[in-house]
């Protein structure tokens, strides 16, 4: 695997790694079955909403550890408003890039940070629990990276149709039968959507 020196540095000597005692918020994303899981812990100043401390745990490959490390660097000392703007592209740029098959690691790290922030905001009455609907589904699908090229499946127009009715999600995909990434993408879709209590069933249709 061709990793940049920055990725290797953050992998060998990650910043802000370790479990945090009594965090103000935390979030865990990913699943062991997909081979990667990240937990982010936050300590937030109640008055000015600055992220005063942040740490992470990571089960996963080198890029998974490195992207979690860089995301904590990017968020530390920022206000919640500024930290909410951190994307996986920022993480990739700060690491001098990632191989296409590893882009999903940076999405996971950025996603976990955003969920931790959202958990804090909900717990402190700064925002309402968002309604689950088609927009949530689309936002989740936008986090799924097609490993061949390292771009998300919505941007690549691989999602033809999204439906949500009575707890059932229906997705029509535009991926050829000989596409060897079909299984990976389907697994990721299930993982991203089934974590919502509102989702009872996910049906994915390929041509």
């Amino acid at each position: 695997m061709q990793y940049s020196q920055k990725v290797l540095d953050h992998f060998m000597n990650p910043h802000n790694v370790g479990k945090m005692e009594n965090p103000d918020a935390s979030a865990t994303e990913g699943s062991p079955s997909c081979g990667d899981q990240v937990t982010v812990y936050l300590k937030i100043n109640e008055d000015n909403h600055i992220i005063e401390d942040i740490s992470f745990l990571s089960y996963g490959c080198a890029s998974n550890i490195a992207t979690a490390s860089i995301i904590t660097d990017l968020a530390k000392g920022k206000s919640l408003e500024d930290a909410k703007k951190i994307t996986y592209e920022d993480a990739m740029e700060a690491l001098d890039g990632l191989p296409p098959v590893k882009v999903h690691c940076s999405v996971l790290a950025a996603d976990t940070l955003q969920t931790a922030i959202s958990n804090y905001e909900i717990a402190h009455g700064l925002k309402e629990v968002p309604n689950f609907g088609k927009e949530t589904i689309l936002a989740e699908l936008k986090k799924i990276i097609y490993p061949q090229v390292g771009t998300d499946i919505v941007t690549l127009k691989m999602v033809k149709y999204v439906g949500f009715n009575d707890g059932e999600v229906m997705i029509d995909m535009n991926m050829m039968s000989f596409d060897s990434w079909r299984e990976n993408v389907a697994e990721e879709i299930h993982e991203h959507l089934e974590k919502y209590p509102e989702v009872k069933k996910v049906e994915i249709n390929f041509p």
Partner: peptide, 8 residues
């Protein structure tokens, strides 16, 4: 393992 959420 020190870094792993599963192990923790």
């Amino acid at each position: 393992r020190k870094r792993s959420p599963l192990y923790n």
